[in-house]
């Protein structure tokens, strides 16, 4: 078989395989949504479903995974802080609050602390 013909074969076969594999993944992701996506939605609604009213704002919180008594207060504080940052008068919906891990390298943390100490 000539290189050009073999190249055509590789092209057709290659594109087909790429599409088949990724279409398979699409199907798996869709299945995953059915099994785990829906459950999560119910879970999050059950964990915390609080409505906090700030200055004319309607706030819905649905992802703080904590059973602490002051969860609502924490939500209110975070929402109020965001609202204040954005100018106060707005229709703010907080749909999810997730605690983010600190990914700063250790030397980055030290330099931040040094910066703060120098300013204090």
């Amino acid at each position: 078989m000539s290189p050009i013909m073999y190249g055509l074969l590789v092209t057709l076969f290659g594109l087909t395989i790429v599409f088949l594999v990724l279409t398979g993944l699409w199907g798996i992701l869709a299945m995953m949504k059915l099994f785990f996506g829906g459950k999560k939605a119910q879970e999050t609604q059950a964990t915390v479903k609080s409505m906090v009213n700030t200055t004319g704002s309607e706030v819905t919180a649905a992802a703080v995974q904590s059973d602490e008594m002051d969860a609502d207060e924490l939500l209110a504080v975070i929402t109020a802080a965001i609202s204040a940052c954005m100018g106060g008068e707005n229709n703010l919906y907080v749909r999810k609050i997730t605690r983010v891990g600190d990914n700063t390298p250790v030397w980055g943390q030290i330099s931040k602390q040094e910066q703060m100490l120098n300013r204090l």
Partner: peptide, 28 residues
Amino acid sequence: PLIANPRSILLGAAAQLGIFTTFMGALL
């Protein structure tokens, strides 16, 4: 974003067209 919108995975497949057309181009 990919898990939330799985059909977008097909766009990632379509963009591989460049690999195979260039492969043919190099042979030609």
